[in-house]
Nucleic acid binder design. Structure first.
Lengths: 180, 180
DNA sequence: TTGATTGCAAAGCATTTGCATGCTA
DNA sequence: TAGCATGCAAATGCTTTGCAATCAA
């Protein structure tokens, strides 16, 4: 696919997500505001896992008047609208990632450097549903996280290095193709 | 198996877990104290998912002089020793469950009543390992949680009822046999 | 005796809430 | 105009930390 087409698709996608958002706002009897528009805008253009805090600082750069609270509240709103998804990687922070128009996926997290790889396994998905039904549950959603040592960190294993547990490590998000 | 044998096995298991604990304490150059003994004791005899808070109150009943802090610190210790495992069900609390001598398992959580069912699926387990290796990771551990509506709540679906999101619901732990 | 352990109070941290003010529909 | 939204400060809830006193080895 051409770059131009990629961009066109991206723009299209943004438009759709904004429409979804406005629709949700209307249905819920809420109001469209400049802050919500800006926060959504910046959220959409950022293809990363980010915390409310992260997003807050990005928003700050464009409009320093926006407060922490509004970002929190808007992220909840985006989650309700199906545009964002909450994820946790074990560092006791809530990350948000795009949800609408994005394939569902799970995460592998490196215990050494904090790198996060996204993957998708249809087999695991269907077995999860099977298990849920076996216990009489109608499944709604799930969370699967795998932890381990990534290739890079296995090679660095000789050198001494701090582990993730011992301090904040930069988190890297690695885009990945489907798993199985 | 006779009840008597069950009890004998239980006692045996407790003894082992205590030994593990003492061993861990020794290896780490730490010290055995009355508080740690008591907290471990009560943790072991409680076959539930419990929070530090929960455990604190149970301990209080037997020794009101023990503080919150010590329970927190001891639970961390038990986790390091491999006797406890931290779990989260989405209500933003850290639960602890027995880990040593207990089969590894995952959880299905009812989104309506908060019921938690434990299950184990060897197939899912091995697929998880396969996925990790595919991405170059050496897997260490994982967390799989399924959410859905349990059988009871499906039947109650006609009556009006609050959802879990709208308030604290009693959490029930259901002991379960292996999943697949 | 030495240094780990405890309990209290205080601090942290992420998140939520109360409320007066501002703004959308 | 009605009432939702905002931003600040304060409150919350869970967890950790500083510290003086205590206790195990």
């Amino acid at each position: 696919m051409l770059k131009l087409e990629d961009m066109a698709k991206k723009i299209e996608e943004f438009k759709n997500e904004k429409e979804i958002f406005l629709e949700h706002i209307q249905k819920a009897g809420l109001r469209r505001t400049a802050q919500r528009d800006l926060i959504l805008e910046i959220f959409l253009r950022t293809e990363e896992h980010l915390t409310s805090e992260d997003l807050y600082w990005l928003v700050q750069k464009e409009d320093p008047s926006v407060g922490h609270t509004t970002v929190y509240r808007t992220l909840k709103l985006l989650t309700e609208a199906g545009l964002a998804r909450e994820v946790r990687f074990g560092d006791n922070k809530t990350y948000y990632e795009h949800h609408y128009n994005h394939e569902h996926h799970d995460h592998i997290i490196c215990t050494e450097c904090g790198k996060v790889v996204e993957f998708f396994s249809p087999e695991i998905e269907s077995m999860q549903d099977a298990v849920a039904h076996k216990f009489g549950f109608i499944p709604t959603h799930h969370s699967l996280r795998l932890w381990g040592v990534c290739e890079d960190c296995q090679h660095k294993a000789n050198e001494s290095h701090p582990t993730m547990a011992s301090g904040a490590q930069p988190r890297v998000r690695v885009k990945t193709i489907a798993g199985n």
